[in-house]
Design a protein around this nucleic acid. Structure first.
Lengths: 145, 145
DNA sequence: GGGTGACGTAGACTTTGTCTAAAAACTCGA
DNA sequence: TCGAGTTTTTAGACAAAGTCTACGTCACCC
């Protein structure tokens, strides 16, 4: 768990420091991807990242986007959010928090940890350690069937 | 929410009644699929169901398996569980409960609702209604990195 | 210069799931 | 029983997300 990072576009130096501090070599491609991820408080799929990174002619390959997102997640820079069977979202907010997921629109919204408390965490199965707790509140638009 | 259904293999009549009572026409294929789903307390992917239904020469097509699982979920017979980016699991237990998901093994285990309480449900975004709450506790094997 | 290791890449490939068009199976009244 | 209309099933084509492979490039170090 780390402090919530700032949400204005980061300077190149800030991005480099961020990567460095998580033990990630700050290559050009990784910096580009980090810029996109941390530019604003948003939840992006791999494909979103791929499109945004490549929209103004800077070219990063699909394989690199997937590799990098996996690396960032493994290093704790971002968090995978699994709510939609068709794709994984990546969340630059690594503070403890949870999610609303609008089934109709595909929209994903944060819920601050202090808005939703969990009581009585159950004992884990023997030989296992906790890796994280995800709470997803699925919502629908009122009008929809 | 309904009572937890029995978990011994169901008689054909029980299956027919179960489908009927949820407003699902009990065709042969749907009965076969329901038998597999409700045979034991287990979480199956669509592919698991497809294989089990077809293992002893009874033939149900892929399209029908997917259609039927979707129908059963829509009618509240089973519940979709989204924990793994690569596939959806179907849970015959529709009582309120949550899940452990072992990231190392892919194993999915139930947590009874009374083992884990949620406090302070946050207010929903305007114009939306709740559709369900999923809590997933991700766990790893102790030995693994 | 030449070796080494980390990184990036294109494109083929895999897997999960959806779609389409047609066939088969029920329903129900006459 | 016939036949029209509806529902269900089907094979196979298709789509999308993600992975893999084999190679290319670059930095570093001797």
């Amino acid at each position: 768990m780390q402090k919530r990072p700032p949400r204005q576009p980061l300077s190149q130096q800030q991005v480099i420091d961020l990567l460095d501090s998580h033990g990630v070599q700050p290559t050009m491609q990784r910096q580009e991807i980090a810029q996109v991820l941390f530019a604003r408080d948003q939840h992006l799929s791999a494909d979103d990242v791929l499109k945004q990174v490549n929209q103004d002619s800077a070219r990063v390959s699909k394989a690199t986007v997937y590799n990098t997102l996996g690396l960032f997640a493994a290093k704790g820079l971002i968090r995978e959010v699994i709510v939609d069977p068709s794709r994984v979202f990546y969340d630059p907010n690594t503070c403890e928090h949870h999610h609303f997921y609008n089934v109709d629109t595909g929209e994903l919204m944060d819920i601050d940890a202090d808005q939703l408390a969990l009581m009585n965490l159950p004992t884990l199965p023997a030989g296992t350690v906790a890796d994280g707790v995800d709470v997803i509140i699925r919502i629908r638009n009122q009008a929809s069937a």
